[in-house]
């Protein structure tokens, strides 16, 4: 039992990263992680020893994320996205990289939540298509098309951003 619990604790940094990429806002992301940990610890018996704790936790978090997205949509609310600096993704050294990181994190928030989740699992968390499909509970073909569409959408948004920036400079 304790092995299970410490295995879960060791996944917290990865869960936080996944949640941050999904939601961007630090507090909202940590709320999601907290909900995920609470649910995981209530359902420890559902986790079979030998199964990857990461995949199991990512699956739980995904269900919570979907619930949250649906609730927000029903209420017609936007997701909580704060723009205070403390919540910003600033992780990289050079300013150029930090700007690129910010642009990409912004653009990621603008793509649909299904595609975002698929892209983040594969491109940020490094899951294989089969594993990401398993976490999201969708067929591998669907996963693949979400990843590629998500990536295309992200690139289009980044192209827009750089176009707007160059227009600004011209002004």
């Amino acid at each position: 039992m304790n092995d299970k619990r410490s295995a879960i604790l060791q996944e917290i940094p990865r869960l936080r990263r996944y949640a941050r990429a999904l939601l961007r806002d630090r507090d909202a992301a940590d709320d999601l992680v907290q909900d995920c940990l609470e649910r995981a610890l209530r359902r420890l018996d559902n986790w079979r020893v030998g199964d990857s704790p990461r995949r199991w936790l990512f699956t739980i978090m995904h269900h919570l994320f979907v619930d949250q997205t649906r609730r927000a949509r029903r209420r017609g609310e936007a997701f909580p996205v704060s723009h205070d600096e403390a919540g910003e993704v600033v992780s990289e050294p050079s300013q150029l990289d930090a700007l690129a990181a910010r642009d990409v994190a912004d653009a990621l928030q603008s793509i649909g939540s299904d595609r975002r989740a698929a892209l983040v699992l594969v491109a940020v968390e490094g899951l294989s298509y089969a594993e990401a499909a398993d976490v999201l509970g969708i067929p591998a073909g669907t996963l693949m098309s979400r990843v590629s569409r998500g990536r295309e959408e992200l690139r289009a948004l980044l192209d827009d951003t750089s176009r707007r920036k160059s227009i600004k400079v011209v002004d």
Partner: peptide, 20 residues
């Protein structure tokens, strides 16, 4: 893909909030 991975890599370095 590299930028995306790098953008969130720093989260792993952060101190974990005590509430978690």
């Amino acid at each position: 893909a590299e930028t995306l991975h790098a953008a969130f890599a720093g989260v792993l370095d952060e101190e974990i909030p005590s509430r978690l």
